[in-house]
């Protein structure tokens, strides 16, 4: 029988990403404050999450890593009022959204800023704040000071 403590990662600390082999370069770049994605050399499509073979065409090509400008726009968002666990409660309300990067790929990420300022299509840019866990987040353009 499952015990409650089996998901202690979520209830007692900020969870670390469970890194896949395909994504090792992505996370190495995050630690340097850079945002990477992949592109297929055959169909030229932007690929995310990372893959070992392009899933979008039949070429079977190995994707190449490319650095993102980090600029994009809000595709959708939600302000979290009832967080999943105690560690998140201190930070709430916070906004989680889908960001469409200018290279035409999407990240599920946090969008820093006042909840009332959030709107679909607003421009955002990537940031790498000092936190317990290194993650790329986004900020509304013109708002570079962290909360």
């Amino acid at each position: 029988m499952l015990e409650q403590g089996e998901f202690a990662d979520y209830t007692e600390s900020f969870p670390e990403p469970r890194v896949t082999q395909d994504a090792l370069p992505y996370w190495a770049a995050v630690k340097e404050g850079r945002l990477l994605f992949q592109r297929c050399p055959a169909c030229r499509g932007a690929i995310f999450p990372p893959r070992s073979i392009c899933p979008m065409c039949e070429a079977g090509a190995t994707p190449a890593w490319e650095e993102s400008s980090g600029a994009g726009s809000i595709y959708s968002f939600s302000v979290v009022h009832r967080p999943p666990s105690a560690v998140w409660r201190a930070r709430s309300p916070y906004t989680i959204g889908l960001v469409r990067l200018d290279e035409d790929w999407f990240l599920f990420s946090e969008i820093e800023g006042r909840p009332e300022d959030m709107a679909i299509d607003k421009r955002v840019h990537v940031a790498f704040p000092e936190r317990e866990v290194a993650l790329p987040v986004f900020r509304l353009d013109g708002e570079d000071a962290p909360r």
Partner: peptide, 23 residues
């Protein structure tokens, strides 16, 4: 939530479904 690219941001199930609601 995706354990690599979603879960570390602190979503709940409603947060993930809310992305569709918003759109």
């Amino acid at each position: 939530a995706c354990p690599q690219f979603e879960f570390p941001y602190g979503p709940t199930i409603p947060t993930i479904y809310a992305q569709l609601a918003c759109r």
